[in-house]
Design a protein around this nucleic acid. Structure first.
Lengths: 166, 166
DNA sequence: TTTGGGTCCGAATGAAGTTCGGAACTATAT
DNA sequence: ATATAGTTCCGAACTTCATTCGGACCCAAA
């Protein structure tokens, strides 16, 4: 009997050890980080200082990377969300990443497997602004083509879930 | 000369009117919302109550949707980020969205234009967990196929930029 | 000039974050 | 069994911050 059927488990960043309270705490903070420690304490059956210590530890361990305000892209004048697959000939494109990062329309940059080499998440004012952006991307050396997928509706948009995986 | 060349400008959510201070304030809060109003005031050359009033207004207007903690997916045991294009035969899939939302691996759900009907952003423990997830998606009625793009590296991941668009 | 809306400031108040000392518990070693 | 070290928790004290308030200032419309 093959009791040792080990799946591939990439572990570059060491996973933190978390108990149930840590996970529910992270879940609460991931949906609304403006709650007071006293309020969180009531939900977790803990005192405010105890919650504080846990949050402090989770921050030091890097489980909590930051606290940020979530902005409304449409109200900022960018209602059009698009995913752009970028084809490249060269893999020495990391230099051009700096340029892409500077563009306010670009929210995410990933290198991916599959037909394309890169995947961008971009938010623009309208299709014209998207076209301008694509034109700029095409003008970058090594970027040979793009395929765009315009988001019609977004039904879910959240961060990583702290729910236990096994 | 065609001086009136009007581009398409979708305006479902009314864009808010923001001055320069609002935009820099939003930028600061989008990268770190744990700063005190006094500290923000120093950066903006404003008093703490003035900053408070602006934030309050931006929240009421819905420009600031929430304050959340950003978690590290890898440290939570999900190092593998994948974008999944889902093909569907039927457009009556919105009922199945509720099921997808319950899956902790699924972070984003969009309906998109192009070859596929839906685009998912999912985070899993490993390729095995991804395979299990895909199997579950395939078993949903109306979902005929998927194409997956595994993210090798992520170079940028942020929210909408408050930088002025024109 | 007057009125109203908007934005700002300083001062005061109340709430929340933060620190501290010590108790309770666990695990390991002696 | 007892001792030691490590962890987590609590209540109390302290400090910082958020929030409110009254009034000043500016600008535009009446």
């Amino acid at each position: 009997m093959a009791e040792d059927s080990n799946p591939v488990r990439p572990r570059l960043a060491p996973p933190a050890r978390l108990d149930d309270r840590d996970r529910t705490l992270l879940g609460l903070l991931a949906e609304d980080s403006s709650r007071s420690y006293a309020e969180l304490g009531k939900l977790l059956h803990l005192s405010a200082p105890a919650v504080h210590e846990r949050v402090k530890r989770l921050r030091q361990d890097g489980v909590i990377k930051a606290n940020v305000a979530v902005l409304d892209g449409a109200k900022l004048g960018r209602p059009l969300l698009t995913f752009v697959h970028v084809d490249t000939t060269s893999w020495a494109v990391t230099r051009h990443l700096l340029a892409l990062k500077e563009l306010p329309e670009v929210e995410e940059i990933h290198t991916v497997t599959g037909e394309s080499a890169m995947l961008l998440k971009v938010r623009t004012r309208d299709t014209q602004a998207l076209e301008d952006l694509l034109e700029r991307i095409h003008s970058i050396e090594g970027f040979t083509g793009t395929r765009s997928y315009i988001a019609l509706s977004t039904y879910l948009e959240r961060g990583p879930s702290p729910v236990a995986t096994e």
